[in-house]
Nucleic acid binder design. Structure first.
Lengths: 352, 352
DNA sequence: GGCCGGAATCTAAGCGCATAGATTCCGAGG
DNA sequence: CCTCGGAATCTATGCGCTTAGATTCCGGCC
């Protein structure tokens, strides 16, 4: 007992067996009041703190769930003085941050501990996601944050929810969000209210199921209006570069429809830099509904998705599928709704 | 092996002992290349995921640190449709959210797993903080989130950093922030640039060390200017109520100096509701520099503190004090800087 | 070919807790 | 006072892994 006190120390001090100590903490009603008191007193006197590793090992469960996410542009290391001058809304909160918040809220509500992990400098042979997976009873992972084979492997042991699922991980569930209709309604607005005809889509069309859905909604609306659908401007490697190319060719469309708010904000930057008026000369729209889009100038028209609800739903799915581990439905009921939000960048709402 | 594969299963399949399997993962250089490959192949084939509980138990360390925080106004349970209509900046991110982000960033950088826990419906006799403490190698706790005696107890086992320390927990460290001079400089600004003479402080004067520092800086500046320092308007129980009282008595000061942005925002609400012009009739200032203060109307003059750096520093302190567990310095070098941010609510910057 | 020493591998002993199953306690009933 | 049965408590074991210390392997050397 030189080090940290254990059940043995508490038991000895209280004059009972370790089993009784264990019961005192986990099933107090099984222990006589008097015994309980003496155990708790001994524990308090010794400063006993139950060791969760031992508990987890013995029970086979940890009582925690995990959230595995990106290194999303987080390498920003800066000193406090820089931070004091910063305008942080372009960095935080972004989409994953709000989803994470939803996860946190739901865990809190259910009394679950939440273990956060993220990619990057993993320790050993396996991705760091495996490390997190070994610590929890269920795992939520952002698509792309972890290798698919690692997730597949993990899904054989514990319930997994993949957010924004790319390749559907075998045995994993996902949270459905109605990206398609949100994007369709946004484009319909652009067609009807603003009379736009020349569209350029910025972002990847395929890849994750979400990307595909968004592009699908875009294509649906255009097709219904009899407008041919051009391939998207891939924004991945050098985001600015592609947009600049479109500018250089002097082939500005009526509107840039972007797959995400973050991409749209980059487009806005490039256009501002080039002296192109938004929305006067060209409109720009995003997707997600992050705070930065409300604060940009012009404020960004977008499609808002219930990011917090995505996180909450993920936790519920996890808990649910842990309960009835029998059949593994891949999907989860009704998709969460999305909603176009009209701001200045599409030409709605005049500047004050 | 009906359930989850263990080292035994991997060892059997690879034709080695469990020790070799263990070495293959933790000290690969100790194992011959050929052996290593066969172990990893077996592990992959079986879908082996190391059990962190067992590892933690055997090693005596978990490799994770914990962050324990408030239930800060988080009981907001709402459905996705409500969320789509929400203006969330009054809820997120607040002070603890940004600090948490700093903690996350630093953990990520160091390859530490982060365990999140928070008060509320605890499981058993002890606060939930003990549950979290049992899972980690070090704990960061917001002051007030956990009972002091529980923290004291925990600090006997693992390093603890208390943020915004109230009663100094024995053996715990804390992150120092220079609230005092920030507040002093803000008040000096109000005195010199705006000529305010009649001040009302909103918030608690004592309690946590931080509160005391803030009020101290306020008092310093007033005293230096020869202005008597009235006791603060305690804002705790019914925040609006107290401010309303000040209004009702028609004794509006020149400026409400609030201890936090959140309190200042409430004051702004009450004043707006009462039709009192800010900053025309009375000025209002806050403290912290949360995003909501930038978005309020009028935008809130405040003192910004480097919240993210607070989180990062906390992690560093933890890692540091885990390393040299010998002497326990209670403090941590130079305090982090703070900086007044002048916006409209104090009368600076005309409305566009 | 036999011997030697370091590298590779294995054996065995916990780590702190939960929990079947065994044992003891204790009050009620006879 | 004795018996009986449920409640209270205890004994014993295992959870999956790490790691001293023991053992075996193997190439180089005499």
């Amino acid at each position: 007992m030189a080090g940290k006190p254990t059940v043995y120390d508490v038991a000895e001090r209280a004059g009972v067996s370790i089993a009784t100590v264990s019961f005192a903490f986990s099933q107090p009603q099984r222990v006589r009041k008097k015994t309980l008191d003496s155990v708790l007193a001994a524990a308090a006197a010794l400063g006993y703190v139950p060791n969760a590793s031992a508990r987890g090992l013995a029970k086979g469960r940890t009582g925690a769930i995990g959230l595995y996410s990106f290194d999303h542009l987080l390498e920003v290391e800066r000193d406090p003085v820089d931070e004091l001058r910063a305008g942080d809304e372009r960095l935080f909160p972004l989409y994953p941050d709000v989803v994470q918040r939803g996860v946190e809220l739901e865990c809190r509500r259910r009394g679950l501990a939440l273990m956060l992990g993220s990619g990057g400098a993993g320790a050993g042979h396996l991705s760091a996601v495996v490390d997190v997976a070994g610590r929890v009873d269920g795992l939520i992972a952002f698509a792309g944050a972890a290798p698919v084979d690692a997730l597949t492997r993990i899904a054989r042991r514990i319930p997994v929810v993949e957010l924004g699922g790319e390749t559907r991980v075998t045995g994993a569930r996902t949270v459905l969000v109605d990206h398609r209709s949100g994007m369709r309604r946004l484009v319909e607005h652009l067609l009807r209210e603003h009379g736009h005809r020349r569209f350029t889509y910025v972002g990847v069309a395929g890849g994750t199921a979400e990307s595909a859905d968004r592009f699908g909604g875009y294509a649906d609306a255009l097709t219904a209006a009899g407008i041919p659908v051009d391939p998207p401007l891939d924004s991945r490697p050098g985001q600015e570069a592609t947009t600049r190319a479109a500018l250089a060719e002097a082939r500005l469309p009526d509107v840039f429809v972007c797959a995400t708010d973050q991409e749209a904000l980059v487009v806005l930057d490039v256009l501002r830099e080039a002296g192109v008026d938004v929305p006067g000369r060209v409109a720009v729209t995003g997707f997600d509904g992050i705070l930065a889009g409300r604060l940009s100038s012009p404020p960004l028209t977008t499609v808002r998705q219930p990011m917090e609800a995505v996180g909450r739903t993920a936790v519920r799915l996890l808990v649910h599928s842990a309960a009835e581990r029998s059949e593994r439905s891949e999907e989860a009921g009704t998709p969460l709704p999305t909603e176009p939000v009209l701001r200045r960048s599409c030409g709605c709402r005049p500047p004050r």
